[in-house]
Design a protein around this nucleic acid. Structure first.
Lengths: 109, 109
DNA sequence: CTTGCATTTCACAAAATCGCGAAATAGAGA
DNA sequence: TCTCTATTTCGCGATTTTGTGAAATGCAAG
């Protein structure tokens, strides 16, 4: 029996890691309100096209967002809405509220 | 009006970033079942003492875990139980289940 | 086919992160 | 006080990440 009994949660950690960048989380929060094309997200973040593009590819690789081409532009949408709810929980915790009483449904959309 | 309208969610991103490492997420998952001292976590992860200690300090800095000294050892506990529920959601999504029907209460403990 | 637009890929330097062993620290107990 | 034990901090090299401009790609319209 190896000293490490359970396999490391690589896949799940990758999701957290993808969300663990201010610009990417900003993008995700924006996508929580609706689809956006890359151009919108470039304006939103104030970063360069190539930078935003790579951030989006990171989010896509772990399944947090999905893209769809319509017309000339590519629209990104949030694939895991529970991310937004979890973020709301973090925000509540950061505000010092007792987390035990901020009851939200999670992972339900 | 600056081109970036909303401030970047640095604090929340820091939480995701802290969880975005396999070893740290492994530790958090273990703490979800109860308190552990550093020695236990060293055994669990198979990493060196200094490495585990730094991972724990990262988790503590963002408020995900808390530590308490009792006797000779320092015990760590999970401060944000909703992390465990969110992880369960990610796992369900990874299994290909329709996320809309994996209804769990989140942020309620 | 050619042009023009939206987006991605590439190459690179600066910065951050990871894991380790050695050394430092804190504090309980004799 | 002195010593042992548990844990943290330090310094290091190796690896990864980030942001950028330039170049490449894909594709719709003419």
């Amino acid at each position: 029996m190896p000293s490490v009994k359970n396999p490391l949660p690589r896949a799940e950690a990758a999701v957290f890691k993808a969300l663990g960048h201010p610009a990417r989380l900003h993008v995700v929060n924006e996508l929580a309100t609706g689809e956006r094309c890359v151009s919108d997200l470039v304006d939103l973040t104030g970063l360069g096209w190539s930078t935003v593009s790579r951030h989006l590819s990171v989010l896509k690789a772990v399944g947090v967002v999905a893209d769809e081409k319509r017309g000339l532009q590519i629209f990104y949408r949030l694939k895991l809405p529970c991310v937004a709810r979890f973020t709301a929980c973090l925000h509540a915790a950061a505000e010092g509220q007792d987390v035990r009483f901020t009851v939200n449904r999670c992972c339900a959309g």
